[in-house]
Amino acid sequence: MSLLEAERIKLFTTRSPWWCGLLAIALPVGLTALIATQAGGPGSAEFDASATQLLTGLGRSVVMVMAALSITSEYRFGTIRATFQAVPNRTSALLAKTAVTAVPAALIGAVVGFGSWAVFRLIHPDPALALDSAADWRAVAGQPLVFAITAVLSLGVGILIRQTAGAVAVLLVYSLLVEGLVGLIPKIGDDIQHWMPFFAADRFIGVQADAPGLQELPLGPWGYLAYFAAIAVAVLAAGILSAGRRDA
């Protein structure tokens, strides 16, 4: 318990988490509002709640940076050594940090999910946007889970790479480019893409669930969430294992 509190003090006594948190909410919710103003009109497609979540990925990317920074900045400034000096059990120290990173990420995810939905509905009132099915609820209320798991995964990458520039570059390039481009590989591209972690996260949320390429998938929404979580836990475990072996 005291380890969690120590990590909480660390997180909230520098400014960057506050700015990241603000940005992670303002960016997707603001742009969703902009989309909502242009939505509808003759000939436009039917909406459902998941359509309001198209830009939540922006918030997720900021949360990635925030989570990676929370550990790489400790390596940069040497506070990780002060941490391991105070808490020689590195696994406990890093698990406490994971919890303290994942919980704010979940909160941000909740605000982004419901915020995007609410702002869209406010600007473009449409009965189709009501949360009246399990899929609708998953799309909006599932964001906290996806954001928290994203934070865990990013923290794991941060622990492994230890340098801010490297960790952030790997995370953003991977999530924004690599996963999308893999699909371009002929024949096997689709099969590989179906097992990529952020692809899995998007399937849980159900963005563009009607798209023709996404009809026959190996897992259902909850299966994909479990798969995404398993990858995040594996990366974190690898990070903690390597932190335990390396010299601090």
């Binding site: 005291s2 003090i9 660390k10 520098t14 900045s73 400034f77």
Partner: peptide
């Protein structure tokens, strides 16, 4: 261990944007 051993290896092992008090607070809490 802070109750048994105190150490100053590098005075720069502090986050530059954290106040002196906050730095000591998280150490004390841990």
């Amino acid at each position: 261990p802070l109750r048994t051993v105190g150490a100053l290896l590098d005075a720069k092992w502090v986050h530059p944007n954290r106040s002196a008090r906050a730095h000591l607070q998280w150490l004390a809490r841990s």
